[in-house]
Design a protein around this nucleic acid. Sequence first.
DNA 1: ATTGTGGCCTGCCCGC
DNA 2: TGCGGGCAGGCCACAA
Length: 281
Amino acid sequence: MPEIIEVELYRIAASATIGRRILAVDAPDAWYLKRGVSMNALVSALRGRVVDAARRHGKLLLLDLVGAASAPGAPGASVTAGAVDDGDAVTLGLRFGMTGRLIVDGIAPITELAYGSSRAERSWERFALRFDGGGSLMISDPRRLGGVELDPDEGDLGPDAYGLTAPQLAHALAGSHAPLKARLMDQTRIAGLGNLLTDEILWRAGLDPARPAGSLEGRERARLARAVTSALADLSARGGSHTGDLQSARQRGGRCPRDGTPLQRRTVAGRTTYSCPRHQR
DNA sequence: ATTGTGGCCTGCCCGC
DNA sequence: TGCGGGCAGGCCACAA
């Protein structure tokens, strides 16, 4: 599924659209538009603008759009509050849920997606930008778990998992009685970690996912910080969050790749969790 | 405030 | 061979 690693690849792909002007917006699925944005409002807010930047915060992909939006088409169109848009920059937020794929100019940066399908069905196309001079940026999402929103509140997100510092990690865990895994996946505390990455990180760190987050000692926090860094670096280099050392054993009957112990399968933080009862304490 | 739970979405896989 | 139930997890609303 798209976790921070995949969304970073999406960001790189999306950066190819920088400088292009939006000619048309396809939003065939109203359910895919979040935070109460109507199709009409979204289209008129985006059309005519130019992509200025492609950013990422955690699993949220952000497109900064500048330039005047298209003038309200029909005479008498209701734009009572619309004057705010004119000339102001807007930011388009794209979320991919578990099965969302980004396709830029017809090319998907990620072809194989854990739990997703690699097929291309027209009916799965939930949102697209068509650019002046050709080319497009499109989201294909079979399960409709992703979504699009205008001017997302980035303040709701914790520090990005890439480049997370030890003090930031310590702050994210301090004083919490929630399971360690829940805290790591809480996007308001740390942005970007999903289920697979979190299992991999805790396995590398040798920490029980169910441990109260605030119970870690200094050495354990240091180990966890190193595991976050190493897991992100290794799995990014390998090309995805599904390439972890634990991944092949992450199934019923799987054994710990480190010590051969049968892995424990349980629900922690509401998610299916695999861990080694021997070396994760 | 913090933590936990259930539901949403739907393709796919397993067992009968 | 077809069918139905369970499963996957990011995110959100809501409960305790």
